[in-house]
Computed example of a mutant assay.
Amino acid sequence: MPRYYIDIRSHFGTDEDPSGIELPDVAAARSEALRIAQELLRSWAAMRPHYSNEIMIEIVGEDLRPVLIIPCLDLEFMKH
């Protein structure tokens, strides 16, 4: 099974996933990234909008190339 790394990029820098997670495909990696994002939304809510709008979740493949980037703005639907 391929290994995916889920990194959080923001105005403040990058929080890289050092160990990654083995998942069957990109769709499963996206689901895992959204699960992580849901946990983080509570702390993001306190940020100024211009900072939180810059947050992106980047899914990186085994070859260390980005396979999917999810902008924070796309996560707004999860707040409700």
Rank of each mutant, 00 (worst) to 15 (best):
I57Y: 05
L23C: 04
L34W: 09
A37P: 09
L68C: 06
N53E: 10
E16V: 13
L68N: 05
R9S: 08
R3K: 15
E22A: 12
D63P: 09
A46Y: 10
L41H: 02
Y5W: 06
G13E: 14
I6L: 15
E32S: 12
L73Y: 07
D74Q: 06
S52W: 03
E16Q: 14
P49N: 10
A29S: 02
H11I: 10
R48K: 15
P71R: 04
L23Q: 02
V67Y: 01
L75I: 05
A37R: 04
R9L: 06
L34E: 13
S19C: 11
E76W: 05
D25V: 07
I59Q: 01
E54A: 05
F77I: 14
V26E: 07
R35G: 11
P24H: 13
S19P: 00
E54Q: 07
E32H: 06
R65S: 04
L41F: 04
I36K: 13
M78I: 07
A45R: 15
P18I: 03
P24Q: 10
R3E: 10
R3N: 09
G61F: 02
E32L: 05
M78Q: 08
Y4I: 05
N53A: 10
A29E: 03
D74Y: 01
S52F: 01
A46L: 11
S19T: 13
A28H: 04
L34C: 10
L23V: 04
H50M: 15
R3P: 08
Y4E: 09
L75F: 01
N53F: 05
G20M: 08
V26I: 15
P24A: 15
R42Q: 06
E62P: 12
R30N: 12
P18D: 00
E39C: 12
P71A: 02
P66G: 02
W44K: 03
I70R: 01
I57N: 06
Y5Q: 01
D7H: 14
I57P: 12
L23A: 07
P24D: 10
P2E: 11
H50G: 08
P24T: 12
I70S: 06
K79S: 08
A28I: 07
E58L: 02
D15A: 15
F12V: 11
I59E: 09
Y51S: 11
G20R: 05
I69D: 00
V60I: 08
F12M: 04
R30C: 12
M56H: 14
S43Q: 10
D7A: 07
G61C: 02
D7C: 04
G20V: 01
H11W: 13
L68T: 12
H50P: 05
P49D: 12
G20I: 04
F12R: 10
A46Q: 13
V67M: 04
M1G: 11
R35M: 07
E58T: 09
I36D: 14
A37K: 04
D63Q: 11
E54W: 00
I36Y: 10
S10L: 02
I8M: 15
D63L: 08
V67P: 00
R9W: 09
V26P: 00
R48L: 15
N53V: 03
V26Y: 01
V60A: 01
A33Q: 06
R42W: 09
G13V: 11
R30A: 15
Q38C: 13
D15R: 15
V26M: 06
S52P: 00
